[in-house]
Amino acid sequence: MPDLGLEVLLKGSNIMRLLAGLWVALRISLISVAGSIPIGIILGTLMTGRNIVLKAILKIYLEFIRIMPQLVLLFIVFFGSTRMFGWQPTGEVSAVIVFTLWGAAEMSDLVRGALISIPLHQYESSEALGLSKTQTYWYIIIPQTLRRLIPLSINLITRMIKTTSLILMIGVVEIMKVAQQIIEANRRSSPTAAFGVYLVVFLLYFLACWPISLLAKYLERKWR
């Protein structure tokens, strides 16, 4: 049995350090999701409105954010804001800004999709039944939209968690950085540690995302 470098993780508090690193990534994604859901709902609702100029501006902005690789956006905020605003955000702050903007753009598209998927006759029928505008939205449109929206927004959380792995590239100390440190520190005693440690990181990410994906899939099936 070749040395897989797993015993490195049992040394000292290495496994706890890895988990703490994972928590950094999870915390950033949760804050960003919490920010992007309300912004995304507002932007998505605006996108279904009638104001053409506003829609055009929003569309260009949202499409730009959605088409750019998230790493590029991270670079723009992390390296660019010093030049542009004379303000140097830390890696974590840049990450939260970028992921909130990106999440809001993705969310707005989901909201828009869910809203336009509600057939027009739903509005007309509730009007025919004498419901007011507020009642129509509160009792008819919002419940149906939410059913379509909730599984998709849960999926957005897993996408967000996976995307936060990128913060390594702007120097935030998260799980990958901790893994690198552990591997470096044990270079002499167990030269093959990279295999075991990166495998564990891979599995930890899987364990963080998989239950959330399953929940999203379950809800999608249940509410279809």
Binding site: T158, K162, M176, F195, F202, Y205, F206
Partner: peptide, 10 residues
């Protein structure tokens, strides 16, 4: 359920 970055490092 895993990021590409982690897959590449492995």
């Amino acid at each position: 359920n895993t990021p590409l970055l982690v897959q590449l490092f492995f």
